[in-house]
Design a protein around this nucleic acid. Structure first.
Lengths: 139, 139
DNA sequence: CTGTATCCTCAGTGATACTG
DNA sequence: CAGTATCACTGAGGATACAG
């Protein structure tokens, strides 16, 4: 049985991600590793956490306060997933009261450019999207 | 009342996305337009549809067959959302049997570079992530 | 402060049947 | 073929209380 949150996949499955019919075309298979990684990164909170961890190391509570609407539970879950995937480093300082800091790993930092591009795109095109929506509703 | 799937927001809310304390820093507010756009794009199916619509116009059934695991219902919902946001163009040919083709709009095409970057990142780093996971489990 | 443990809700999703 | 309409379900996520 597959453990929860697993990213496993056989080599055959991974190889199936690039179509055999056309190596430049993309096969969107459910068991594809890329699909699974995408699903994890593109969830409700991960992108936001990664964006906030740009440059600045942040504590658990700081992240919670910066991300409007996230619960402690989901912050913990999200951070654990990112840590598990090697994107975020968690450092516990044995003090009292406890202090835990989160920062991007080198691997996590390679993702940063892409995520920021997504955020920037959203910012740049939000007006166009708002207009498209209005036009669609007025149909 | 806000219509379902709305992307509305007051100007004050939109302006709140960039922090006033530090214009280069990012305020992650729940009512922020960028958050809402991100939520929509980063759902389970949208990225896959956009990636498949790169270059090639596709019919409803073709999309359904290419995307492993998607139901007709979710394909419809996803395509309608993308159409509503002006990212995808839907063309109905008055034939029998009916033919409906989907393609990216110019706006949708501006998003393509970013989404492909995400997919490429996933492909490039899937081995590192797999290793990180193993290390984490072995803890 | 930084979580963990429980319980519970509901939105997203799938399955199925039906329609133009 | 390309949907729409219903219904049912699951699991992501929130609330709360508790713990180290």
């Amino acid at each position: 049985m597959t453990s929860p949150g697993s990213l496993e996949g056989t080599e055959a499955e991974v190889a199936a991600c690039r179509s055999e019919r056309d190596p430049f075309q993309w096969d969107v298979r459910e068991d594809c590793q890329v699909r699974q990684i995408l699903d994890r990164i593109a969830d409700k909170w991960s992108l936001l956490v990664i964006a906030l961890l740009d440059e600045k190391t942040l504590r658990f509570g700081e992240l919670g306060r910066e991300i409007d609407g996230i619960s402690k539970r989901m912050l913990t879950v999200t951070l654990r997933n990112l840590e598990r995937d090697g994107l975020v480093l968690r450092t516990v300082y044995p003090e009292v009261p406890p202090r835990v800091e989160y920062e991007l790993t080198p691997l996590g930092r390679t993702l940063l450019g892409t995520t920021q591009a997504l955020v920037n795109w959203s910012e740049e095109h939000q007006d166009e999207i708002a207009e498209a929506r209005q036009a669609f509703e007025a149909r």
